[in-house]
Design a protein around this nucleic acid. Structure first.
Length: 467
RNA sequence: GGCGGGGUAGCCAAGUGGUAAGGCAGGGCUCUGCAAAAGCCCCAUUCGUCGGUUCGAUUCCGACCCUCGCCUCCA
């Protein structure tokens, strides 16, 4: 049994096998954020998807080296730095910190490296120089350096590996014109952008004069520097397939003459309330907007990984409410398992793990995996309800859950401890109930409720739960 | 216009050439002083429409309708 993953290069799911001779080490690169604003929920779908890929490969025994870039120089950033009258570092530092905080909130594992574009300018210049040396890139009269798709093709390389392209039928829109500098050919793209007055002091020296890198070159330079000229996995949102990833392939393979990435994976976008997210529709949410509505990172993470990564997903506030209920069901089950297991120990239950693995091995069929998990929850609940679950069986179930959770990463709900004063009120209510003074008991229940705690009367006694 | 995804219950969402997972919502029941919480059970004769292939189609093929994305800012 092998992990099968869909590869955009072949448009089919294929068995995953690392390039490394040990068969264990995996290099994985995911296109990270452009730090010009707070990231929105759609951005995070991609990062949670990448986190899931990494966690699952680790679950399957691979040693993953996960790299995610931070794009901290780019047109929009430069404009906003100018508008804000601040420095590049100060501006991007603020949003980078916010991004990483959001990343943690969503319970994503931090990549092993998060290189900033501005700290790899030398590597980018070196890569561009190699392309010029090979005759694939050229310097335009304005001082910018462009990648020549014609020359690249002339070397026997293929442009258009990820997306089927028909350049003749391509619509030439306004956006092409607005990005036009002095390219030889329409499809050529910038490797190095010559400094213009609007750039202010945001520029670096290079053999071709002052300027700044084009957008695509950073990912080629940083991924190859940190993972090698050929590596296993490259991930990103589906919109990046063209031109960003196509151009990355061209730059990298054009410079090295070697295959760049073996396996490309693209996450689909999400809709919000059935529509494309847009500020004017009022369905544009940053993670922070959602947290302000009172939901947790854990709930958002759950919702983002309830559906398959290659399907567009409809993110709704209703769905978010449902996420809370669904997670509570899992939490309840786990709490009861822990109570039943007590001090017992046992190896992880194999049945759950087998089914879970079988589901995710098929191109990360997470929906099928959730079905396995919820079937398991129901089975556990039934066994507990009928008193048939032994402490050893409960411990085995918990052992398996721990493995499952290493992949889905929803963890355990933080067990909030009620303040002593409230516990005293709870005791008072218990006494009142015992004395059949239900009026008094209900008053105490309301009092606790007004302080944000609900009473749950269980067969084993009353307990407090935050509302 | 070119290319590529989708349309499965009230909502979200898997899946298969042999008769439809799971979650949420809803309904019933158990527990409870009552309630809440929790648990159990129920909940699509049917998979966008129309044709075709087949013993059999939601699944394969064709046409059509609707929808989303990419086509050099983009997760």
């Amino acid at each position: 049994m092998a992990v099968r993953l869909f590869n955009t290069l072949t448009r089919s799911a294929q068995p995953f096998a690392p390039l490394d001779s040990d068969g264990k080490t995996v290099g994985m690169y995911c296109c990270g954020p452009t730090v010009h604003d707070f990231a929105h929920i759609g951005n995070f779908r991609t990062f949670v998807f990448a986190d899931l890929v990494r966690r699952y490969l680790e679950f399957r025994g691979y040693a993953v080296r996960h790299v995610m870039n931070i794009t901290d120089v780019e047109d929009k950033i430069i404009r906003r730095v100018r508008e804000a009258g601040t420095t590049l570092r100060e501006f991007t530092g603020r949003y980078e910190a916010a991004f990483l905080q959001d990343f943690d909130t969503l319970l994503c594992l931090r990549p092993h490296a998060t290189p900033r574009a501005t700290e790899f300018i030398a590597e980018m210049i070196e890569l561009i120089a190699r392309l010029i040396e090979r005759g694939i890139a050229y310097r335009a009269p304005d001082g910018s350096v462009y990648f020549s798709i014609d020359k690249y093709r002339g070397c026997g390389c293929k442009y258009g590996q990820l997306v089927k392209l028909n350049f003749d039928a391509m619509r030439v829109g306004d956006r092409v014109a607005s990005d036009e500098y002095e390219k030889e050919s329409l499809a050529d793209f910038a490797l190095w952008k010559a400094r213009v007055p609007e750039d202010g002091d945001i520029a670096w020296p290079s053999p071709w004069g002052e300027g700044r890198p084009g957008w695509h070159i950073e990912c080629s330079a940083m991924s190859m520097k940190l993972l090698g000229e050929s590596f296993d996995l490259h991930l990103g949102g589906e919109d990046l397939a063209f031109p960003h990833h196509e151009d990355e392939i061209a730059q990298s393979e054009g410079a090295t003459g070697r295959p760049f990435v073996r396996h490309w994976m693209h996450g689909a976008h999400l809709l919000v309330e059935g529509k494309k997210m847009s500020k004017s529709l009022g369905n544009y949410f940053t993670l922070r907007d959602l947290l302000a509505k009172g939901c947790t990172g854990r709930e958002i993470r759950y919702l983002l990984i309830t559906s398959h990564y290659r399907e567009s997903f409809n993110f709704t506030l209703d769905g978010l409410a449902g996420a809370r209920t669904a997670l509570a069901r899992i939490d309840e089950c786990l709490a009861k398992l822990r109570e039943t297991a007590a001090a017992a120990h046992a190896p992880a239950n194999a049945a759950l793990l087998e089914q879970f693995t079988a589901a995710l091995d098929e191109d990360l069929n997470i929906s099928a995996a959730w079905a396995v998990i919820f079937d398991w929850v129901r089975d556990c609940n039934r066994a507990i309800a009928t008193g048939q679950l032994t402490p050893v069986a409960a411990a085995a179930a918990l052992g398996a859950w721990e493995r499952v959770d290493s992949v889905i990463g929803i963890g355990n709900k933080a067990e909030a401890e009620a303040p002593a004063g409230l516990l005293a009120l709870l005791e008072e209510r218990n006494a009142a109930r015992k004395a059949k003074d239900f009026k008094r008991a209900d008053v105490l229940r309301d009092e606790l409720k007004s302080q944000g705690w609900a009473i749950e009367d269980t067969p084993k006694g009353a307990r407090l739960k935050p509302l």
